[in-house]
Simulated scan of single mutants.
Amino acid sequence: MTGKPEKRIKAVFFDIDGTLISFKTHRMHQSTQKALHALREKGIRVYVATGRSKMMMPFMDRYFSFDAYLTLNGQYCYNPREVIRKKTVDSGDIRLLKDMLAEKPFPCLFVEEDGMFLNYADERVEKLCEIIDHPMPPMHGLDRVRDDEVLQFVPFLNEEEEKILTGTLKNVESTRSVPFCFDVIPAGGGKNAGMHAVLMREGIAPDETMAFGDGFNDIGMLGYAGIGVAMGNAADAVKASADYVTASVEEGGIAGALEHFGILE
């Protein structure tokens, strides 16, 4: 896809890790910061769409104040005034998960609206915290898990173990961005579901939007947007799902794509 979009872009959605923020530097490229402010000056809505939780968002304020935050892969979406979408994992599936953890333990991160915690940690958890530059969450027993309040959980398992888990739990879907863990959300969820809720609230059509991402959990979002842009550092499957592949996050790929499509000059 080349040239200016057929319809005026009214909203742009950005993944965080590997898109806005570099995995290598844990920082935002200077051209990206300038681009975010330029979008706002043009009256374009600017949103974050991430697998991270609400509790992990304050660090973004050092760079930019977004119009809304689509967190937990679209399961918890909010702006400064209200919660736009909140979708929890099926309580029956959470009870099954706890039974599995009691029988054969593995590290699992549970995320609720205002908190997250692990049952226990190992080197895989430490590695994830290092990659996303985040402190180790607190640890609690399974009796702390509230069956009807889990928005997302993150099992630290390999791909074969993932198939067994998601085959047992009937009302979930999963997405993976690293080899040693994956995100589990309610079936029918995803960043595209969060986008739909936000756009309905704002009266913006999907073909009036643009989205940037690099991970497998971004594929639905890139397909839902009018223009889906994959970062140069994205996996091949993500690039294949996009309308356009830009430069990497370290090379200022966001600003480059916005200029390519004539959104910014």
Results as ranks from 00 to 15, higher is better:
T2R: 06
E159T: 12
Q33E: 15
L118A: 02
V12R: 03
A102E: 03
N79K: 09
L36D: 08
L109I: 02
M55W: 09
M116Y: 05
P5A: 08
R52S: 00
R27K: 14
T175V: 12
G51R: 01
D61H: 12
M200S: 14
P206Q: 02
A38C: 09
M56L: 10
I185R: 02
C77N: 03
G92Y: 13
K98S: 01
F14K: 02
E82H: 14
H37M: 12
V249P: 08
G18Y: 06
L199H: 04
A38V: 06
L222C: 02
N79T: 14
Y76C: 08
M231L: 15
V249F: 09
R95F: 07
R124A: 13
M195G: 08
G43P: 04
G92T: 11
M136V: 12
D114M: 10
I84E: 07
G215M: 12
P5I: 08
N171F: 08
M136H: 11
S31W: 12
C129K: 05
F64S: 08
A242H: 08
N233D: 10
R176A: 01
D214M: 02
Q75I: 06
E123Y: 12
F153M: 00
V154I: 09
S53Y: 00
K42R: 15
E173K: 05
I185F: 03
R8D: 14
G51Q: 01
K4L: 10
H260I: 07
A102S: 03
I84C: 09
V83R: 13
S65A: 13
N73R: 04
D207L: 09
K7A: 13
L20S: 01
G194R: 04
G226Y: 04
E173V: 09
A247E: 15
T50Q: 00
F13Q: 04
E251N: 14
